[in-house]
Amino acid sequence: MTETLIIEAKEDTPKIVFDPANRLFQISASSLPENAIGFYEPVIKWLNDYSVNPIDLTVFDFSFEYFNTASAKQIAKILLILENIAKEHEVVINWHYKKEDSDMLSSGSRFSKLIDLNFNFVGY
């Protein structure tokens, strides 16, 4: 099984927890890195490695406070890998958003229309 990937949040980069043994796949907090491609490179590499031999059900939690457009492109890449995994395994996306933040809900809804995956929208 792929090793755990944990990246702690900074003020401009999100927290990443990828822990297949405990069935945790989480991206949270804010994402406006100086170099979005550079920040997400190891994240995307990890997911590509994971996609070779994923667990039977991957429940992926996005709970962004904020992300910029440069990050949006990287999030789309992540979703494409998950879409690929979903061809042979089960994948569920939980898109968490603050109830008063309708922009974050519509961002998630846009991704869900772009990519063929099961999305749950979870207001908190």
Binding site: N68, T69, K73, A76, K113
Partner: peptide, 21 residues
């Protein structure tokens, strides 16, 4: 959506996404 898809294909692609957003 179109820009996001284009952006996925090329490294520097998707210019103008900021303005659209």
């Amino acid at each position: 959506k179109k820009q996001l898809k284009n952006g996925m294909l090329s490294i520097k692609g998707g210019a103008g996404l900021g303005f659209i957003d």
